[in-house]
Amino acid sequence: MLKLEDVVMSQGNFALKADFSVEPGRKTAVIGPSGAGKSTLLGAIGGFLPLRGGKLWWQKRNITHAAPGERPIAMLFQDNNLFPHLSIARNIGLGIRPDLKLSASDQDRIGKALERVGLREMVDRKPGELSGGQQSRAALARVLVQNRPVILLDEPFAALGPALRHEMLDLVHDLSNETGATLLMVTHDPQDVRRIADDVIFVEGGRAEAPQPAAALLENPPPALRAYLG
């Protein structure tokens, strides 16, 4: 269980509060108006933004002060998810060992992950030689080998067209089902929510609300959410 206990985050004048838990294995969409703090919330969970107050727990472990790489979390950002100067295999290998001292079995895992996302032929290519969709698949392959119990997606597919984005979301859906990972993803699109989310965290007015079941919430949104959805 990922638990945010009286968490206060701030960036400049902006402050965001959160106090809730996310059950393991749930797929949760984070929605809300732009500037409301969706990325701030994920950045704080990922360890990129020090908390101003409160505690962050994963199971029984207090991860409030853990470095990003030491948290049980794999995260994808809006951009710069791959190192453009390294081959796809190495980019994925970094998810296993940051010093890239890879054993034969590590190589094997990289191959399997690439196979799973349909990029087996691209092992030795550089990210620049791949299409946008293929780059997203490569980043997801790294998330796969990172094998962390929590996956955070801060709109990594925002630059893709609708069809490709849906394809990626389906892949994310399947991957997190296979690994049993807890997924938190920022999105703007109610369709995305319907597509893969079990729950929704609504961020607005300086608060990140506790997750609520997606279907029910979208059927019968409270006024603030209704205003946002239009």
């Binding site: 990922g46 990003p68 790489g69 950002f77």
Partner: peptide, 12 residues
Amino acid sequence: RLSRSLGLRGWS
């Protein structure tokens, strides 16, 4: 952020 999330530091 990418380096930090992968724990890439020091000589690596």
